[in-house]
């Protein structure tokens, strides 16, 4: 994925990442968190805007800084970094709204060829997990890193 990305910062375990989105709305600090879930070695990918005054994180904010592609590429690069430290994990992602989940699906679809080279991809339907298929609706996505 040869798209511009923002510089990522993280603490030493690569669980929390931060980057700065730059655009017409100024500099917006974004946080990515790989959250431990109720399943062993399954982490949920969550991200949102950081309020610099309070330190609070808002995952419903729509900052729309005209850099959606760059933000998506940066989040995907954080996933690669995460798997370097946690190679045996799964990463799950679901949007805070249906339209955000659809946005994730669009992102996976756009880079599908590259992604299946590096990840086993699954989609969550009402019936459970199945191998990710293009043009199919899912409520969440699961990835396991391939190491060839």
């Amino acid at each position: 994925m040869k798209i511009d990305k923002y510089l990522l910062k993280s603490e030493c375990s690569f669980i929390i990442f931060e980057f700065i989105s730059e655009g017409p709305k100024g500099n917006i600090h974004k946080v990515i968190h790989f959250q431990k879930t109720n399943q062993p070695r399954v982490f949920n990918l969550a991200f949102g805007d950081k309020n610099l005054d309070t330190g609070d994180i808002d995952d419903l904010a729509i900052s729309n800084n005209n850099d959606g592609e760059k933000v998506l590429a940066t989040v995907v690069s954080a996933v690669y970094a995460f798997f370097e430290k946690h190679p045996d994990s799964f990463v799950y992602a679901t949007g805070s709204t249906k339209s955000r989940t659809r946005l994730y699906r669009m992102g996976i679809t756009k880079y599908y060829g590259e992604m299946v080279a590096d990840f086993y991809l699954y989609g969550r339907t009402d019936d459970g997990f199945q191998e990710f298929e293009l043009n199919k609706d899912y409520i969440g996505f699961l990835a396991q890193r391939k190491f060839n």
Binding site: L7, K9, S10, E11, C12, F14, I16, H33, A46
Partner: peptide
């Protein structure tokens, strides 16, 4: 795999439930 800058100040979020 990107080059990641280590920022120890992010440690404080590791055990918080941010979302």
């Amino acid at each position: 795999v990107p080059i990641v800058q280590i920022d120890p100040s992010l440690e404080k979020y590791r055990n918080e439930t941010l979302f």
